[in-house]
Design a protein around this nucleic acid. Structure first.
Lengths: 132, 132
DNA sequence: GTAATTGCAAAAGATTTGCCCCATT
DNA sequence: AATGGGGCAAATCTTTTGCAATTAC
């Protein structure tokens, strides 16, 4: 395998994700990163996000409502709650019962590597309010 | 509310989705539709897919691995299995236990409108095989 | 007749990539 | 010094949109 280097850019990007709990988009990570490295480019941010994702250091979340990907430092398995009004993304526990389900016994499934659960609704900040 | 019309294009698109079980992309729906309506445009396909989705007649699935959206005729709630090797998308039952979980009791959640469960792994056709 | 809808083509976003230079090892 | 990685900009890909012409009602 090819060896990787510890560049300042990569470190900064990883730091940002590990310290954030807002699940930023690539663009947001970019803006954050520029405060530390004013010359960093968006392409570099994307390349590193993909790299870190492939290494398992970062997780990419694709909102089911069609916005851009959001990222988080990878920690223990959990699910996500997505507020349709304000677009907030919250970590929530992964229901334990999902771990007991033998999806492999379903017709057509051979092995399961990941369970991705998105709960969509309205967050406390937005209450039941229907945003136009 | 504004009134809608039953155009041939819209009907054909809905038919395609209701008869397919492969969860086609917009592009694929477009190719299918052209067999019946050779002049239909991709823009029309997108407009109608969005329209039908908003009416609840069609469901849009955004693969967590970053491909384009896929569509299905809306039927009873179910989850999806996504094969990382061949990209197949299969309907699987939504685990009943999820219905019992009171996500609203989680910190920050006020109301839940939809549960989106994606199980990712390898399908029977691909077995454990690692595709390059 | 009227307004919703289409086809076409251009536009908009998001993400990727080529290329050449620079920095890490 | 060797080469992985960065910066910049152009390219890609998917999806949306403006507009004039068309069609369902």
């Amino acid at each position: 395998m090819k060896k990787t280097r510890n560049t300042r850019q990569r470190g900064v990007i990883l730091d940002i994700l590990q310290e954030s709990c807002s699940h930023p988009t690539a663009e947001t990570v970019y803006r954050e990163a520029r405060r530390v490295l004013p010359n960093i480019s968006l392409g570099t941010v994307y390349r590193n996000l993909n790299f870190l994702r492939d290494q398992g250091a970062v997780r990419e979340i694709r909102p089911s409502d069609g916005g851009s990907s959001r990222f988080e430092g990878a920690h223990t398995p959990h699910a996500h709650f997505h507020c349709v009004h304000c677009n907030a993304l919250l970590d929530i526990p992964l229901p334990g019962t999902l771990g007991n389900i033998r999806f492999e016994e379903e017709e057509g499934i051979s092995a399961v590597s990941l369970i991705d659960l998105h709960v969509i609704g309205s967050c406390s900040g937005c209450e039941g309010g229907a945003a136009t």
